[in-house]
Design a binder for these strands. Structure first.
Lengths: 329, 329
DNA sequence: TTTTTGTAGGGAATCGATTCCATAAATAAT
DNA sequence: ATTATTTATGGAATCGATTCCCTACAAAAA
C-alpha cells in the first residue's frame, strides 16, 4: 500500500505539503503542487480514508439499519437515502436485523464503533432498551416509520391513511368491511392502522364482527389464510376487506378469486403500500402509496442537517401518502 | 469519545492490558481482567474500529457495487450476500452506480481508499478501463453476472437458459417465436440471451422475421412498446414471444391482453428472471428463476475464500436456474 | 541454591493521515 | 534601510488502537 510518506519522498516535499495539495488547504507553490500531483498521477495513490477518519473524526459513512433487506419497502427507502447521500459524498453501510430486536442494539453499537457520521433506523418495533441505547448514542440519528420521542422522525400517517381508506370504501357504498392486520407490536402498521379502521367504522356507526378482524404476517400466503375465517366464520359476510399491506391484500384477493367470487362486485379489496405488484395483478389493487423514496430523501436531508450541526431537536416530518386507484373497489 | 487510554487509567492497568482483555490475547491475570471488564461495562466503552483497522489492515467491511439499488435482482443479491457475510461479522458498504459506467471506476477507487476487505461487483457492461482498474486493485474481488477473465466469477448460463426456454416453447408446439431483448452492450442479458434464442431457432430450422426481434429497456412499459411492432409489422404473426426479463414480458402481456387476444391460446409469453410479479399476474408468467440469493451466497463464499487466502485463481461458479411454470405458454 | 521456564504487564513504536507551530524566504509597507 | 506581512514549507504531535520487545517476579527444574 502506497502511503503519503512515499509520495512525499518521491515528490521531494514533506508529508505536510502532500496533504495540503490533496486537500487544497494551506499554501503551496505551483511548482511543488505540480510535482506532487504528477507523482500521485503516476503512482495511482489514494489516501487512506481510514487514517484520515482517525484524525478528522469524519468517515463519510452513514449506517442504515433495516428490519429486512430485500423487501420493496426497504429497497425503495435505501434508494431515496442514496439519492441524497451520494450527492454529498456519503456512502451507506448496511445493517440488516432480520427482524431480530437484539440485533438492533448490537448494530447500533457496531455502527458507533465504526464512527459512522450518522444513523438511519427503520425499525418495526421500538422497545425500551433500544430507545435507551439510542439516547446515549450521541450520533446524528433519524428514525423512519416509527416514532421515538425527542428524535428526528420521518413518519407516515398510518392512522389517517387507514381511516381514509375505510372512508373511501364507505363512500363507495361498502358497509361490512373486514380488516386484515399484523401484530400490534408493530405500532405503525399493526396498531395505528388498526385503530384507524376501527375509528372510521365507529364514526359511521357501522358494526364490526369479531371474525372480520384477522391478524397475519407480511406475506401473500398469510393474506390468503386470513381471508378464510373472514369468509367462513362470519355471520354477516363482509362486502369489502382492507389489508394493511398489499401482499396481504393480494393473498385475500387470491382466496376470493378462487372461491369464484367477483372483485369488487361480490367483495372489494383494498391494500396499503403501493407495491409494484398492485399495479399488475388483476384486478389492479386500490392501495395507498406511502412514497418510501420520498421518505428516504427526507430522512437523509434531516440527517445531513444534524451532521452539519443545524437541527438537533425533536422533528417530525410527515410524508404525504396518496391513493392509487385500481379496480378492486 | 471514550478511548482505550481512559479505560486503562480507570482500571489501573496499561493500554496493552486493556487491549489484551478485549482481544483475548497474551496473558492477563484474572484480577486485572475483571477490573478491565468492569470498567468497560460501566462506561459502555466500544473500541474504535477505525483505529483498529489502521493497525490491523482489516476493516470487516465488504464493498458491493450495484448498477441499480432498488431492483428486485439487486435486493435479492444483497440478501444472499448478507446471509453469509453477517455470519462472519462483515458488513456491506453499498455503492450504487445508477448504470453510470464512470461511477464504477470511481467507486472502485473509493472502496479501495476505504480499505474494504473485498469487493463484489454486479455490473451490466464491462469495459476495458473498468477491467484494467480491477486488475491493479489487488483486493479480493468477485464479479456477479458478467464474466471477467482471470477473476472469480459467479455466473448464470444466460445462453443456455434462453435456449432452453425457446426449446420448451418449440416442444409445446410454438413455431413463430418473437424475441424482446435489451442492448447487447449488456453481454449477459443482451447478447447471450439473444444468441441463445437465435441458435435454438436455427437448430430447429425455424425462420425468424426481422420484426420479431425487438430491443427494449428494463421496464414494463418498454415491453409494451416492443410488442407493438412485433404484432403490427410482421408478415407472419408470432404465436409466442420470449422476453429477456419478466418486466418486458409483463409489458408484452399487457399489450396482448389489451388487443383482446388470449394468452397462451393466441400467443404465448415467456419471461426470464422470476420476479415476484410473475407469480401473481394472470396468467401467471412462465419464466426462469436465476436464484439471485444463491448467487449472492456463492459470491460471498468465494470472496471469503480469497480473504482467507485460499483461492486466487480464475474461478467460475455457474448458478443453477430452474423453470417456473406459469400458465402463459 | 542456582538456573530455567513461564506468566503478567508495561513502554514505546507503529499504522497513515491531519494540523499546530515554528522558521525561512520573499514581498510589501514604513 | 528597516520592519512588518505574507507565502511556502517542514517538524512533530496527534488520532486510538495493536503489538513487539523487555523486565519483574514466581514457580518449577536442576
Amino acid at each position: 500500500m502506497l502511503t503519503i510518506k512515499e509520495i512525499a519522498e518521491r515528490a521531494n516535499v514533506s508529508r505536510t505539503t502532500v496533504s495540503r495539495v490533496i486537500n487544497n488547504s494551506g499554501s503551496v507553490s505551483e511548482e511543488a503542487r505540480r510535482r506532487v500531483l504528477k507523482v500521485i498521477e503516476e503512482t495511482g495513490y489514494v489516501p487512506s480514508e481510514n487514517a484520515k477518519s482517525l484524525r478528522t473524526k469524519k468517515t463519510k459513512v452513514i449506517g442504515v439499519i433495516l428490519p429486512k433487506i430485500s423487501t420493496e419497502t426497504s429497497s425503495r427507502l435505501v434508494k431515496g437515502l442514496d439519492d441524497i447521500f451520494a450527492k454529498e459524498g456519503y456512502q451507506i453501510l448496511l445493517a440488516n436485523t432480520n427482524l431480530n430486536p437484539e440485533k438492533e442494539i448490537e448494530y447500533l453499537r457496531l455502527l458507533k464503533s465504526r464512527h459512522v457520521d450518522g444513523i438511519i433506523l427503520s425499525a418495526t418495533n421500538i422497545n425500551r432498551p433500544l430507545v435507551e441505547e439510542i439516547y446515549q448514542l450521541k450520533i446524528p440519528f433519524v428514525t423512519v416509520g416509527q416514532y421515538i420521542t425527542g428524535l428526528a422522525n420521518v413518519l407516515f400517517d398510518d392512522y389517517q391513511a387507514s381511516k381514509d381508506m375505510v372512508n373511501l370504501l364507505i363512500k363507495n357504498g361498502y358497509k361490512n368491511i373486514a380488516f386484515i392486520g399484523v401484530s400490534e407490536k408493530d405500532r405503525s402498521v399493526g396498531h395505528l392502522r388498526k385503530i384507524g379502521y376501527m375509528d372510521a367504522m365507529k364514526d359511521h356507526h357501522l358494526p364490526v364482527e369479531e371474525s372480520w378482524i384477522q391478524k397475519g404476517i407480511f406475506n401473500v400466503d398469510s393474506g390468503y389464510e386470513c381471508m378464510k375465517p373472514i369468509m367462513e366464520d362470519s355471520k354477516i359476510k363482509p362486502d369489502a376487506v382492507l389489508a394493511v399491506t398489499d401482499r396481504l391484500a393480494i393473498g385475500a384477493l387470491q382466496y376470493i378469486k378462487e372461491k369464484g367470487l367477483s372483485i369488487p362486485d361480490d367483495i372489494a379489496v383494498a391494500g396499503m403500500g403501493a407495491s409494484e405488484l398492485s399495479k399488475y395483478i388483476s384486478p389492479a389493487l386500490t392501495t395507498i402509496d406511502f412514497s418510501m423514496e420520498d421518505a428516504g430523501r427526507e430522512a437523509a436531508s434531516l440527517l445531513l442537517e444534524q451532521i452539519n450541526g443545524e437541527n438537533y431537536q425533536e422533528t417530525i416530518r410527515m410524508i404525504k401518502y396518496r391513493f392509487m386507484e385500481g379496480s378492486s373497489i
